[in-house]
Design a protein around this nucleic acid. Structure first.
Lengths: 254, 254
DNA sequence: GATTATAGTGGACTATAGTCCACTTGTCAA
DNA sequence: TTGACAAGTGGACTATAGTCCACTATAATC
């Protein structure tokens, strides 16, 4: 990773890692760290004052902070006006009144910019998961929480469909396998793995499962391209998808 | 679809459609139609003489046929020399000694060109599936054939990894949901659906499954980006993937 | 074999992504 | 305060994808 390039965040706090403990454990309700912007940001939000220092301990310059905000604001507005696909990086730079170098320094490509725009929603999602889904989650069994997680993932996909789609496309453009190395996917996978593990521990799932494989495999049907195809092109309802997935978890074999 | 644009093939012959009958039925061992090149081509191969006429009944011009061959040959060689990613469409046009207009008329983007280069392998795959996997298939139960199918799909993915990856990336570039509308994916899904249906009929799978949903969901873990990530980045063996998928089909619930 | 409609051709051209680097600004520490 | 230097900036520039269209070759028809 080069010195001056936008760095991909990796200090997300995972559920149950490195020593997975009970999902309900108080100690696990940790803050979620933003994982979508170019630089480490505080827990609060993309908007807030930037505290975390760079390698040498120097604060992010305030003109840089301003420019980041101008870029995000311009992108939000242009996306709303013309649709995400129709907006180019140059458009955004121009509307934000910054140079392309500045834009690309923060957001190496449109996908990362889209991820940054989803930041607030992403954090809400992560926080909810880490909090164990509030009251509903506390009353549920581990398997119930796994199902709550997937339901919440579907809702997240629905409400961020446009940005997720654009982010996916831009990320794939950088290499189709690298998508699965991203922190955001990693977080989904780790969360899924913990939830499966706990469902095994509670006796609701079979023992001796290949958890790491199954975490991937069970997330795969929710991959944004396929999910949106099912919803928009094939006309599947969310209920149908949920029910179908339920069948998958139960297994197709008699 | 505009008149002069490369058309995406759609006259694949599906297993068991529109009236699905027994997989073993002799009548179903139909020829497979090429689904990867810009124009309808005969069953035999991309190389063979071109017969099928255009809408008005005129044969494809022989200079066009030659140029198609020159393009494919040039692409094959350049891909081998420099790697697929490093070769641009202009490189290919230049090496094939044709103009860019000619190149794009046949292959609207690199993905379709990659698909055309896999054509031979794709046909071999489809033929094998339609033939019921030869002797091994005839001795297997419907569920056994479903497993043979997925094993063969994995082998196909392994042997065409580079082209599949490039084709996937280029296709996603045109819209992440459209990938799943392609004839090639459609063929996989329909095949999967028939195999599940037959396994239900034979009593090996639960009845009342949402076959159309499950066909997608069970193919999703084999999506090329995820599969190659598991193989190359995470170091999963093909055996591990097969075993994990077996667990998925059995269901994770106790 | 001449005619004609039209498929096919090629390369100039446009659009966009993304890089590069000389220059400017802000922060720190002396 | 100020000097040094890292961080940040912006726009010219390069690379590539993909379009467009005047022109050419050829298959079908007369």
């Amino acid at each position: 990773m080069s010195e001056d390039k936008p760095e991909e965040q990796s200090n997300i706090i995972y559920l149950g890692k490195p020593e997975p403990v009970g999902f309900n454990s108080k100690t696990r309700f940790l803050p979620v760290i933003n994982n979508t912007v170019a630089r480490p940001l505080p827990v609060t939000s993309t908007q807030g004052p930037v505290k975390p220092a760079t390698r040498r301990g120097r604060d992010e310059r305030c003109d840089a902070v301003q420019n980041r905000q101008k870029v995000l604001q311009a992108a939000r507005q242009l996306f709303a006006e013309r649709g995400i696909q129709a907006v180019t990086m140059s458009d955004i730079a121009e509307a934000a009144e910054v140079g392309k170098g500045t834009l690309y320094r923060r957001f190496a490509h449109k996908g990362l910019l889209c991820q940054a725009l989803m930041d607030h929603n992403t954090q809400a999602f992560q926080t909810e998961v880490l909090s164990g889904f509030g009251e509903a989650g506390r009353q549920a069994t581990p398997l119930g929480r796994l199902q709550l997680f997937l339901k919440r993932l579907m809702a997240f996909t629905e409400e961020n469909a446009g940005l997720l789609r654009a982010a996916f496309e831009a990320n794939i453009d950088k290499g189709s396998t690298e998508f699965y190395s991203q922190a955001s996917y990693d977080w989904l996978r780790m969360t899924m793995a913990v939830l499966i593990k706990e469902a095994i521990a509670s006796g609701e799932c079979r023992p001796n499962l290949d958890i790491d494989y199954l975490a991937d495999a069970l997330l795969a049907p929710f991959q944004v391209g396929l999910y949106l195809h099912q919803r928009e092109v094939r006309g599947f309802s969310t209920e149908r998808i949920q029910a179908g997935f339920e069948q998958l978890m139960r297994g197709i074999l008699l």
